[in-house]
Design a protein around this nucleic acid. Sequence first.
RNA 1: GGAAGGGUGGCUGAGCGGUUGAAGGCGCCUGACUCGAAAUCAGGUGUAGGCGCAAGCCUACCGAGGGUUCGAAUCCCUCCCCUUCCGCCA
Length: 434
Amino acid sequence: MLDIRLLRHHPERARERLASRGGGDEAKLDRILELDARRRALITESEQLQAQRKRASKEIGALMAQKKLEEAERRKAETRAIGDRIDALRKELLQVEEGFEELVAALPNLPHESVPIGPDASANAVVRERGRKPEFAFQPRTHLELCERLGLVDFTRGAKLAGSGFLLYTGRGARLERALIQFLIDLHTREHDYTEVSPPYMVSRECMFGVGQFPKFEDQAYAVQEGLDGSTLGKLYLIPTAEAPVANIHRGEILKESELPRCYAAYSPCFRAEAGAAGVGTRGMIRVHQFDKVELIRIATPETGYEELEKLTGHAERVLQLLGLPYRVVLLCTGDLGFASAKTYDIEVWAPGQGQYLEVSSCSNCEDFQARRMELRYKDASGRNRFPHVLNGSGTALARLFVALLECGQQPDGSVLLPEPLRPYYGEDRIAAE
RNA sequence: GGAAGGGUGGCUGAGCGGUUGAAGGCGCCUGACUCGAAAUCAGGUGUAGGCGCAAGCCUACCGAGGGUUCGAAUCCCUCCCCUUCCGCCA
């Protein structure tokens, strides 16, 4: 949620920044400002009347105490009229506020100045590339072939169980997945500064609103229904990312500045309906309805928000460095930026079987956009309550990491050599060909 | 799921229709006393919104939402959460 004061005092800046996203949201500004003015006028008027009524009520109380009942009755009748007027104003205020809030909540975050301006992914900037792409003396196989030959994932039966887009990891594939989760959590909690948390995999709509997932992307979420009657449908949602529960851990709280930054690492499965994405790149495990991910969250002061973003991105990169996977870091342009984010780095890993980079992490500073939505604040040194910056990044998504590990580590004999740091977790140095 | 009891400020705990944003205590901050500290004494100590250059003024908030009333922390209704007991259950 954007700060209404910012919109009020610097509408031109807001208009320009919103326009840079290319979503046309700047067109809503005039209406928002109009509703804001009306809203404040209504508040002022009704509060003046309330003050008047409050005074009158006290006087009536005094009259009653003095047994001046007749006069008290007369005053009651007068005061009732004030009450009626207040009710009418409040009713209008409620309506105005509803429309106002709906519009403000629908505005995306303002891109940071350092974000390149552009309409879509083609304007993203590659910030750095690391690692050497492996060269093969043979035709590298795709992860699909490797999974099949090594018996790591049963795509057919996965689809039988829940439809296309659901995976059944089997045998050594399931073990590798589990090893990766363990490896990632250990990395972020031991070498980095994260506290491990294990959140609910369903959250309330308040949480979904808090991170900016709702209302805009409601069609991308799986809604859960409890029991037979349907009365609970829409109360809980399967999380599309652990960001949804974890960023909300402190919703509605006032943290102490000395407690910042708060850093959490969480493993969770992620559920995404991917409505409208059917048919496009849906084969294999690159785009699925359920995948595992380790998510990193940092809650920091606004002063340190952007340092924290670099740090967070570095933590996610460390994963790929340790696993010896070639990757690049991409700075998203204004048009490609997520709804809640002010600045995002995507980390893409090289997948030789695909001949392309796959996004395995997205590290964002949402500034105070989410904090506002979830009423998360902190008390600064001078005792003032402020909204902190909330950052999130994948550290990292697993299905695609799995793909890159297989495709990069494949050997001429069809086995897959695992990177050194992963071996203790997996228990062997390779996935041998059968 | 059933029954009972609860949800009041940073904590504890009164209030049960009127001048209560909320007694008392604890904590915290400032000052006095002290060489210093403790103890003691005095004062202060919530959040949000509106108006105002500011000082400040006003409004709302006692789990959430509605209702009754001139007036609600106090009365009524609905919902949520917590505790205990019972049931069910991984």
